[in-house]
Amino acid sequence: MFETEAIRVILVVGSLCTAVFMLQRIRAAKVQIRDSIFWLVFSALLLVLSIFPGIASWASRQLGFMAPINFVYLFIIFLLVIKLFSTTVRISQMDARLQQLTQRLALAEKEREDTAAPEEGTREEQTSPPKPG
């Protein structure tokens, strides 16, 4: 059992709020379904942990924790760290892709401008050193 019933009620409310918020975002087409899955599973796990306190008691006995609630905290922290890690990797990849896209768009636009107005700057080009790349 958790020390108090209050913490279980808070967990239930928290997990339901998470799920409702996510489903609302999906409804408003503000989040991709694949990104919402983590949060829906997360809230389901919290719900299970708070409805069946025996799971936390059992796990904390197995792991030698002082109190079941410590297992609950650790479990939440663990999930959030995993999520933070994967989010960092994804942001990093997105960053790299955004750079790549911006560069390629600029190059493509330049190519188009150069072919559209070839007479401009041709004289300069003849005297200037060859372009890199």
């Binding site: 609302q24 999906i26 694949r34 899955i37």
Partner: peptide, 14 residues
């Protein structure tokens, strides 16, 4: 997992 959750749960809210 994603497909099942999407079909069984999410589509009711879209």
């Amino acid at each position: 997992l994603t497909t099942s959750i999407s079909i069984l749960l999410i589509q009711w809210f879209r």
